[in-house]
Simulated assay, not measured.
Amino acid sequence: MKVKHRVSEYRRRMRARGLRPVQIWVPDVRSERFAREAHRQAGIVAGSDELADDQPFVEAITASWDEE
């Protein structure tokens, strides 16, 4: 059985079960660009103690789970 036929049969069976294919694109965590950006963002998070006034603001505008 050829790969193309196996794939189409698999997809047919999955659709018969009420499922549908979904394709998503995610960052390539192996790339140098990703590593640089992750390092940059980690530095921002590490320095977040300097931005301590943000958290009270976030809490002030956030609804409690119990209120919904």
Results as ranks from 00 to 15, higher is better:
32 E>W: 10
27 P>S: 10
10 Y>V: 07
12 R>N: 05
43 G>Y: 04
67 E>S: 13
67 E>L: 01
48 S>C: 03
4 K>R: 15
17 R>K: 04
35 A>F: 02
22 V>N: 02
5 H>L: 14
36 R>T: 01
30 R>Q: 13
63 A>I: 05
66 D>L: 09
67 E>F: 00
8 S>W: 04
27 P>F: 01
15 R>Q: 03
24 I>P: 00
66 D>G: 02
23 Q>P: 00
8 S>E: 14
52 A>W: 12
62 T>E: 08
33 R>H: 05
64 S>W: 11
31 S>W: 05
3 V>K: 15
55 Q>W: 12
53 D>E: 12
23 Q>E: 14
25 W>K: 12
34 F>Q: 08
10 Y>K: 06
29 V>D: 14
60 A>F: 02
18 G>H: 00
54 D>E: 10
19 L>R: 07
12 R>E: 04
11 R>V: 12
23 Q>T: 13
9 E>L: 13
37 E>I: 02
32 E>I: 12
20 R>V: 00
27 P>G: 11
38 A>L: 12
15 R>P: 02
45 V>G: 03
64 S>Q: 11
58 V>G: 03
15 R>H: 00
14 M>V: 01
6 R>P: 12
4 K>E: 15
15 R>T: 00
55 Q>R: 09
48 S>H: 06
48 S>P: 01
65 W>V: 12
36 R>Y: 05
26 V>M: 15
20 R>A: 02
61 I>K: 07
21 P>W: 03
27 P>Y: 04
52 A>G: 02
4 K>W: 11
53 D>H: 11
9 E>C: 10
30 R>M: 08
45 V>M: 09
35 A>G: 08
28 D>V: 10
43 G>L: 05
5 H>G: 06
54 D>Y: 11
55 Q>T: 03
64 S>G: 06
55 Q>H: 11
45 V>F: 04
30 R>D: 13
53 D>V: 08
58 V>T: 06
52 A>V: 13
8 S>Y: 09
30 R>G: 10
12 R>H: 02
34 F>V: 03
43 G>N: 08
10 Y>W: 13
45 V>C: 04
19 L>K: 06
23 Q>F: 07
16 A>N: 05
18 G>R: 01
55 Q>K: 08
33 R>V: 10
42 A>T: 04
43 G>H: 03
63 A>G: 08
9 E>T: 04
18 G>V: 01
4 K>S: 14
20 R>F: 02
47 G>L: 02
32 E>S: 12
20 R>T: 00
20 R>S: 03
54 D>A: 06
41 Q>P: 01
43 G>D: 01
45 V>H: 07
54 D>N: 07
33 R>W: 10
42 A>I: 08
52 A>P: 00
23 Q>A: 11
6 R>D: 15
29 V>R: 15
6 R>V: 14
52 A>F: 09
1 M>L: 14
47 G>H: 11
25 W>D: 15
63 A>F: 04
66 D>S: 08
19 L>I: 00
45 V>Q: 10
32 E>N: 10
46 A>F: 00
38 A>T: 04
48 S>W: 09
65 W>G: 00
61 I>Q: 03
51 L>H: 09
62 T>S: 12
5 H>Q: 15
24 I>L: 09
3 V>E: 15
52 A>I: 08
60 A>W: 07
